[in-house]
Every structure is written in structure tokens, then in C-alpha cells.
Design a protein around this nucleic acid. Structure first.
Lengths: 184, 184, 184, 184
DNA sequence: GATGAATGAGTCTTCATTCAT
DNA sequence: GATGAATGAAGACTCATTCAT
């Protein structure tokens, strides 16, 4: 099961969700298609399980309980963005399930929990740094911040070394700039 | 040929690139698959031609020659973002070809010119508002601004009325915030 | 489409419904599986269409309008059984769709119209020769007569020459005997 | 082994022979597929063993030694049909193996002994009530009687209470009517 | 140039069967 | 003897692409 999710992560990362075939995932997992289907009833279930594993790992790393109170915006962003980036770099396939800015219908249900985890962190940031906004405005603000992050994940993951760091710094600048402006 | 591209735009918009079938495109275009293949050798060629048409339309609307000199950042953004949004709203399949923050391999070549047109405008903005940066930094800065815009296009296109306007305003805020910060 | 139904009739006749594969049907029809699926969305649809064709042929042969009034029971049976047998002999595959005394769930819907055509004829006979029975009793009586006929079709179709004729004669005897007794 | 046959009987009854999966049988038997295959080399062997068990049970109940001499036809039928019905009602998968009027090739060999037991009883009846017929005619007559019974078993097993009794009475009427006529 | 039926490789999925433990 | 995970061939079905008309 672990092997399947590892393989799926790789294949999703390489080809994307639609072009990924269950046979390719099985082969990469070193098993037959029949074995794969003993664990997952269909391709979407694999994506859902993979998304759940990402959620669990985020939870294990404390991502969803990051304290956000009493910090400056810059500190806040460090605490959220750094682990988010680390996580995306360490987990191929995550960007396929998470960082698509326009999730295809078939993946929507499967990846909902994953989107929720990150969303809730972003919402926490927004609530912390823009408490004066109405609920609607906060929600929109969080959406925007999330889309910015999603937009930056792919180039960040693709980059390496200093360039990656530079891009992460830019992402933080972008969020900092946006959230500062949004708080008006 | 126009009918094919119109149809492809619709089908791409509704289903995404991979799930879109050439038969569905042909049917929507009111022709047979055979006819479709007399104009385009394969599915990717349709995407490429559609991307080219978007480029041409952008050119026709003057998007790629928008004057960017001697304006405040806010004015600059208005001049770029408003037509970009208008264009994406008016052209269904555009977001499928353009606003994916992590373009699948198969689409990369086909949509390159499209990405270039928008890129060059963003680069112009960056050059105008952050002339002090090195070429490398300007390029990175432009990339970030582009990814932010790409990230926001899908929710903007999906939204309607005041919510869409609000999201556009947020996008401008985000870019304004980022470009202001980046210029340091 | 005619070729497909012909092929399906053969394959159903040879193997039965479940073991019949759509690829085998396509091959026997001299076409590729893809072509077959341009006409029928799935295997059940083939069975349904084949059943419909049997219904149409029965209709064309006047089976469903056989006059049943003012005849002796023996004459009645001749008028119904002879064409029913001829029909089953001439149409391989019919017995697979029709003469199973315990129709599998998947075929039930597809073959309903077929069962109805024959049922209605049997009901007409019953109504003609046992007018004194209640509706419930007539229905049961017709069911029994139908099951007797279904039971005899396979051996009749398998037999040839005089043996077939002899079996048909026995079927008529059986129905005659039953309907005579039932009318009490 | 008993558990396997019990399970197989249930699964065959619920789904029919082809759609019944060996895994489902193993699961219902509370064992692993591997264990199942330690007793039976393949699916057909399960059917064969189940058929044999039905034969043994029939034997144990004295079905195959029912005395048939010196009885009226009506008494004869009571002595054969009642236990046959009781037996089919009490033994789920039996109708799947026995009461198909057109046995699929794969089951033919496996269920041969089962068909023989009932056949021999029917032949005894025929011999008793139509001693004047030639061997060929007696065989045909027995076949017809058998097919009539097979045809009626499924609706009888499906029915309950009085309706079942009514159908059994009709079956007897049918056989009585047929055998009376056949004796000419 | 247009057609649309035909293609067939390839996809997801199932299941009878095996075998290392 | 029991297990149950693993197998892989095969089935239903899809779709980008072709080609005879």
C-alpha cells in the first residue's frame, strides 16, 4: 500500500493525474495491476488515499497546528511557507493533487481534505493579520493568498538550490505585500 | 477551422485538455472527425492553433503593445490586468491553455507562444517599475507576477458580477504589493 | 448493425450470455471492438437490440396477431407452437435470450419485451380455452404454459428431423393435457 | 469442505454459476481462496461436488428409491414431485445446477449425475404409466416430463406460501395431463 | 475537400488460480 | 493444512487517428 502510494506520487508527478495509468503505477510499485486493485478500487481512490497521506504527514509534522498568534506577518509567513515548501519538495505528486489552481472535477472530491488543511492555515494567517475584515472578505483574502501559494509551488519545486530559495523569498514577499495591502 | 477552434475552446474549458476528446470537438464544430484531422494533425496541434489564435487576438486588441511608460504602478496594473481578465472571461478555453500553473508536458510546446505574450507584458511592467534589478532578478520577478496572475485567473473566471470585480481588485492588490516589495 | 446482431446471436447461442465476449462478437461480425461500440454502448444493449429484433421479426411474421378465436385447443396450439418452434430454430441465440426458465438479472430488462410478446400469446390461448378462470388463475395458468414451452425449446432446437417433430408433438400434447386439466 | 459447498450453493443461488466468483464463495465459507483451492481444483469442481452432494442427499432421503409400482399416476406424481419441490426449496443452489433447461457446456459434465438421478425417477414413472411405449418413446417422454419439471422449478422456488402450493398443483396437473396423453 | 465508419492499441478493472510463508 | 497476498491473462470499453468513398 505504501509502495502503491509512493509509485502513484511519482507517476502523478511525472505525467499528471489524467495521463497516469494504473498499470504504470502498479509497475512502478513493483506489482501487478491485480494487486494494486486489492488495495484501491479505482484510480480516484489512489489519489484520495495519496491526498490523505499528505494530510496525515502534514499533521504529523505539526503543520496544521502551527501557532500563529502574537507573531509579526513576516514570522507568520516563515512558519507556514517554509514547511509548505519543504513538504512539497519532499513529496513529489503533492503538487499534482494540491497545487493545481483549477482542480479538475474528478480530483475535486479526492483532494478536498488536502485543500482544507492548507486552506485552514491560510485562513488562520488571514484572521491573525486582518482581523478587521468581514468574514466574506477574510474568506476571499484567504483564497487569494492560497492561489498565490499554489501558483508558486510548481516553479519552486522545479527549481533547486539558491534559485529555489530565491523563489520562496519572492513568494513570501508576495504574500506579505498582499496581506499588508488587504488589511486596509 | 474557426469552428474547430471555437469548439475546442469550449470543450477544453468544460473538461480540460486531457479529457477533451477530438470527437467531441468535431461534433461541437458540426463536422466529422475526419474533417477535423484535415486541418489539424493531432490533438496537440489543435491546442497549439488555439493558443496561437489567443495570441493573435491579444495582438489585435493591442494587448502586446500596451504602453507602459510613465505610469504609476497602479495605472500599469489596470492597463494589463483589466484586459487580461476581460480576455480570459471572453475566451473560454484560454484558462485551460494558459492559466495552469504547472503546464503538462504535452501542452508546454503548444502553449509556449501564449505564455510568452503575457510574460513579455509582465516583464515590461517589471522593467518599468523595478529598473534597478538585475536581469535575473527581473526575470524571476516577472515569473512570480505571472504565476500570481495565473493562480487568480480560474477563480476570477468562475466568479461573476461583484465577486469577480472584487477578486480582480485583490489580484491587483497582490501584484501591487509584490511589485512594491520586490523593487527593493 | 445487422452483422453485429447476427454475430451476437451466434455467440450467445454457442456460449450463453455471460461467457459471450464483445470481442468475440466483434470478431465474428468481421469488425473491430471499437466498431461494435459505435452501435451498442455495452453488451447488454446488444442483447436488448437482439431481443428487439426477435420481437420485430415475430411481429413481421404475424406471430403477435395470430387469431385465436373460435378454434379448438389443438388448432390453437398448432397455430402458436409451430411458428414459435420455427422461429426458435431459425434464430439461433433466441433460446439464450428467451428460453431460460430462470432469467439472470442482467438480461431481465433487456429481454422483457421478448418475454412479453410470447406471454401475451400464451395468455390469449389461456383466455380462449379457460375463460372461466379468475384473472389470477389465468395468469398462473399462462405462466405454467409458458414455462413448459420454454423448457421444451432447447431440446427441440437441438434436435433435428423427425426427432424434432416428435418433440414438438410432445410439447403440444403437454400443453393440451395441461390446458385441458387446468380448465376445471 | 462442507462450508465451501454451503457457500457455493448460496452464491450460485444468488448470482448464477458464471457470475459467482470463487473469492465470494471462499469469503462466504469463512476461509481464504487458497484454502478453497486445497479442496477443489477449480470452480467447475465445486459445482461438480455440489451436484454430487445434492445427489447424495437425494439418495439419503430415499428419492432415488421411491417405489413407483402399483400406484395411480396422481399418487406417483405426489411421491416424486413433492420431495423434488421440497428438496429444491430446501437447497438453494440446486436450481442453478439442475433446473436450467439449457445447461451451459461448462456445467454439463459437472451436473450430469444430478440430472441422471432425477431422470431415472422420471423414467421410472414413465415406465410405470406408459409401459406400452418403445424405449425411444419412453426416453423422449421422460425427457419431456423432466423439462416440464425443470421449467417449473424456478417459479416454484421463487414463490411462497399458497402461491407455491398452487404452482406445484399446476405442475402436477401438467405432468398428469401430459403423461395421460402420452400413453396413447 | 469532406465524410464518418472503422480501427486497434491501450485503459481500467476483474477474477480464477497460485505459492511462499 | 491454512493463508491471503499476488498474479496476469482477459474482459468491457474508449478514443486518437485513418482512409476508402
Amino acid at each position: 500500500m505504501v509502495a502503491i502510494l509512493d509509485a502513484a506520487a511519482d507517476v502523478f508527478a511525472e505525467r499528471g493525474y489524467e495521463p497516469a495509468t494504473t498499470n504504470a503505477i502498479a509497475a512502478k510499485a513493483g506489482m501487478s495491476p491485480g494487486s494494486l486493485y486489492q488495495f484501491f478500487g479505482n484510480k480516484e481512490a489512489i489519489a484520495a488515499a495519496l491526498a490523505e497521506r499528505f494530510v496525515a504527514r502534514m499533521h504529523a509534522s505539526g503543520f496544521d497546528t502551527i501557532d500563529v498568534t502574537g507573531l509579526s506577518l513576516a514570522e507568520l509567513l516563515d512558519r507556514i511557507i517554509d514547511p509548505l515548501v519543504t513538504f512539497n519538495v519532499a513529496n513529489p505528486g503533492l503538487k499534482t493533487l494540491f497545487a493545481s489552481t483549477d482542480t479538475p472535477e474528478k480530483l475535486a472530491a479526492a483532494t478536498l481534505p488536502l485543500h482544507r488543511v492548507v486552506s485552514s492555515r491560510v485562513e488562520a494567517i488571514v484572521a491573525a493579520c486582518a482581523p478587521g475584515l468581514s468574514a466574506t472578505d477574510q474568506a476571499r483574502c484567504a483564497l487569494v493568498a492560497l492561489q498565490i501559494a499554489k501558483g508558486m509551488i510548481p516553479p519552486i519545486v522545479s527549481a533547486t538550490g539558491q534559485e529555489r530559495e530565491a523563489l520562496v523569498a519572492e513568494l513570501k514577499k508576495a504574500l506579505h505585500g498582499y496581506l499588508t495591502q488587504a488589511n486596509v
